[in-house]
């Protein structure tokens, strides 16, 4: 397994949106989902997860409601709102464009300059 990398500044919000876009999740579930799809290659500060969730809910990109967890306990579930879906789209596009540009720069060889 690769050594986990630290999350880039500002990407946590995008990852949370992606995680809940696949289906409603509680906070701990969001953490697990991100770790699962990243194959444990990302290290997420658990303490910073909740402020991010609250922030996104405050922005209206995700919504929450209380429900029952797998082990029959009360948990707060987050799901993506339509606004959140659009936001995720924009962020993903931006990210991809940026990643391409950066990758292009890093791949540049002396001959190309």
């Amino acid at each position: 397994m690769d050594r986990p990398v630290e999350l880039l500044q500002g990407t946590l919000d995008m990852l949370i949106l992606k995680a809940v876009s696949l289906g409603p999740l509680h906070g701990y579930g969001v953490l697990l989902r991100i770790q699962q799809i990243s194959k444990d290659r990302l290290e997420i500060q658990q303490g910073s997860l909740y402020p991010a969730l609250y922030r996104l809910e405050q922005q209206g990109w995700i919504a929450s409601e209380w429900g029952q967890s797998e082990n029959k306990r009360k948990a707060k579930y987050y799901r993506l709102t339509p606004a959140g879906r659009r936001r995720l789209q924009t962020e993903a596009d931006n990210w991809n464009r940026m990643a391409n540009v950066i990758a292009g720069i890093l791949d540049t060889t002396p001959e190309e300059v």
Binding site: H26, G27, Y28, L31, Q46, Y50, S69, N71, R73, K74, A75, K76
Partner: peptide, 15 residues
């Protein structure tokens, strides 16, 4: 609610 949510997180993780 915040307390409950965080407690749930810790408990779930501990489990």
């Amino acid at each position: 609610e915040m307390d409950a949510e965080l407690r749930f997180h810790l408990d779930a993780y501990a489990e």
